[in-house]
Amino acid sequence: MTIEITSARDTAPATASVRRTAVASAPVGIVADIRNVFVRELMPVLRNPASVLFAMVQPLVFLALFAPLLPDTGTGSALQWFVPGIVSMTALMSASFTGANLSEEIISGSFERLLVSPVRRSALMIGKSLREMVPLVLQTLVIVVAVAPFAFDVHLAGIVGGILLLVPFSVGLGALSLALAVAAKDQAWVFWTVQQTAIFPLLLLAGVLLPLDGAPDWLQLMADLNPLHYIVDAERALFAGDYPVDTIAGGVTGSVVVGVLGLWVGVRAMNRAS
């Protein structure tokens, strides 16, 4: 079967009466594509900044209630050890929430409109995931400012490096979260169940809350398979102002692996979305 729909414009003369602005769709570069998605995703927050205030306070609450329980380790203060873990945890949480808003957009129809628009699938996912990093950056700043007066050394370059290290990880995990939302369609509970089930093993096996040093072999092995484990180790080094090549290379590898794998799965899921 062949259906051909040709433009009537070839035959009918266009009258200029309705149009004043010259408009014609033109190809958009991938960077501009990502920026457009990023800006759109940020709009609800920009229009209603109060909505992120709560998110700003959350990690502080966690820090205030948990950090006092940790004993100082031989190598440094508990805070120095714990803060990079909290930043990584916040990245894990916010990236895995990326798909949460998508269910709403799938149900309302705006996601379908975006799929028909010229925006690249990959740009949709990267833009949406990067938007989830905006609160992360702000949260990190809030945490650092809050703990700076205590037993915590601020190494600005390390903190910036630590945030950059989380970018590929967040994009990849964000893409996986979006793929999950696409697969769950309008059944939000599927999304939440899978997301919650996946999050906690990743978190505990990364040594964010408790050190894994004394872990039995089987637990150690599972932690070694967790990319977040390498990222958290690298974050701790960076926040401490240390730059051991092997630890940082391990973190970068873990982050990039999650990034590439997540995007690959995500783009495939979106292409089969409808």
Binding site: N36, V39, R40, R47, S108, G109, S110, R113, V116
Partner: peptide, 29 residues
């Protein structure tokens, strides 16, 4: 080349109409 008006709403419900129109125009370059 195409405009698409689906059965659902093109504009996200948390967004403003003007922002969504500008965004769509930017997506078309």
């Amino acid at each position: 080349s195409i405009g698409y008006v689906g059965q659902g709403n093109a504009a996200g419900h948390q967004y403003r109409g003007r922002d969504e129109l500008i965004g769509q125009a930017r997506a078309h370059g």
